[in-house]
Design a protein around this nucleic acid. Structure first.
Lengths: 159, 159
DNA sequence: GTACTTTTACTCGGATACCGTCTGTCCGAGTAATTATGG
DNA sequence: CCATAATTACTCGGACAGACGGTATCCGAGTAAAAGTAC
C-alpha cells in the first residue's frame, strides 16, 4: 500500500499555479514539463483536479489551467481525494461475519479501529492547506531558486 | 491505495489462535478453512507472521501454529507491519527538489506533513491490541456463535 | 474593412499497452511423529 | 521386544501464473483564439 505519486505531483502542480496572476492560465504541458512528469498522463490528473473543482480549465487556444479556489481553501486532503478517490484505506471483506455466521452488519471490530485511525490521519491532512505549504516554502527555500521558478512560469503563462 | 485483505485475514487468524489452550497448535490449513481463504496463499501470510515473531510454528506431523506472544502484546500495527512491511504510506519522489534545483534533502514539505499524519494513524493502531478485539467480541457477539467457533477450533487443534 | 473560413493550440474523453504488486497455485525440501518391518 | 526404515502430515521457500490498478501513450472530438481570405 502506497500513496500514488499522482498526489505528490498534483500538490506541487497546485503550488505552481499559486504563482500565477489573477485570470492567467498555464497550459497542461507547461505544467508537466516543470514537474518532470509525462505530459499525456498528467493531463488525466489535471482533469481529476478540475472535476474536484480545485482547478478551472479554459479550452481552446490560449487555454490552460488555473486555481478555482484560494490556496487557503485547498487542503492536502482535498487533493488526495481528488486523485485517489474518497474510499477509505480499509474496507472489511466480511471474514469476521462469515466466521461467526453473524447477520448484524454493525459488528465489525476491525473496521471501527481502522476508521478511527484513518479519521485521525485525515484530520491532519484536512488542517493543512496549500497556503501552509506556500508559507513553508518561502521560509525554507533560498529566494533565488524560488524567483527562478516564478519567472519560468511567467514565461509560459497566457492571458 | 487500499490496505491488503491479508491484514484483515491475519488479524482474525490471530484472534482464532487466542482460543487455543496453552501449547496446542492449529495446522495452517485448518485456519484458512475457518477464514474462508485460499489455503496455499494463506500459508505465505502465516510465515510472515512467524517472521515477525507474532506466531510460532511447529514443523512435522502434529505441527501447526500458535501465538508467540500474549494477545495484549500484539498490536494491530504489529500485524499491519508484518504483512505490509514497515515502509511509510508516502514517500517523496523528489519532484520538489528537481523543480527548485535544491540539494538540501531536509527540505521536503509534503513529507513532513504526511509523516505527521501517518504517525497519528499509527499511534492509534499501536494502542489497539488483539486483546482489545477479543474483549469487544465477547461483548458484542452472541455467546452461542462464539462457542460454536471455539468448538470447531478445538476439533482441529493438536497436542 | 468587415464577414467568413481556415488554421492553430489548447482541453476532453476513450481505447489501449506496460508494468509492478497482490493474490493464488504448484512443487520440492525439511522436519517430526507415527507406523511398518526385520531380527 | 527393540531398533531401524518407511510412511504420513505438517512447515518452509522458491518459481510461476493470473488479476488488478497505476502509469503512460495515442487518437479523435470539441472549443476558442488567431490568422487568412473574399468581397
Amino acid at each position: 500500500m502506497h500513496i500514488k505519486t499522482g498526489v505528490e505531483q498534483s500538490v506541487y502542480c497546485i503550488l505552481l499555479l499559486t504563482f500565477l496572476p489573477e485570470k492567467a492560465v498555464l497550459p497542461g504541458e507547461a505544467i508537466s514539463v516543470q514537474l518532470g512528469s509525462s505530459p499525456t498522463y498528467f493531463q488525466k490528473l489535471l482533469r481529476k483536479l478540475v472535476n474536484a473543482d480545485i482547478l478551472a480549465s479554459v479550452p481552446g487556444s490560449k487555454g490552460g489551467f488555473r486555481l478555482n479556489k484560494t490556496p487557503e481553501e485547498i487542503s492536502i486532503y482535498d487533493v488526495y481525494v481528488a486523485i485517489e478517490g474518497k474510499q477509505s484505506l480499509y474496507s472489511s471483506s466480511g471474514i469476521f461475519h462469515d466466521m461467526l455466521n453473524l447477520k448484524d452488519k454493525d459488528i465489525c471490530l476491525l473496521s471501527d479501529l481502522m476508521e478511527e485511525a484513518e479519521s485521525s490521519w485525515q484530520s491532519i491532512l484536512k488542517r493543512q492547506t496549500i497556503a501552509t505549504l506556500t508559507k513553508a516554502i518561502e521560509k525554507k527555500c533560498p529566494k533565488e531558486n524560488l524567483d527562478l521558478l516564478k519567472t519560468r512560469i511567467e514565461e509560459k503563462m497566457v492571458l
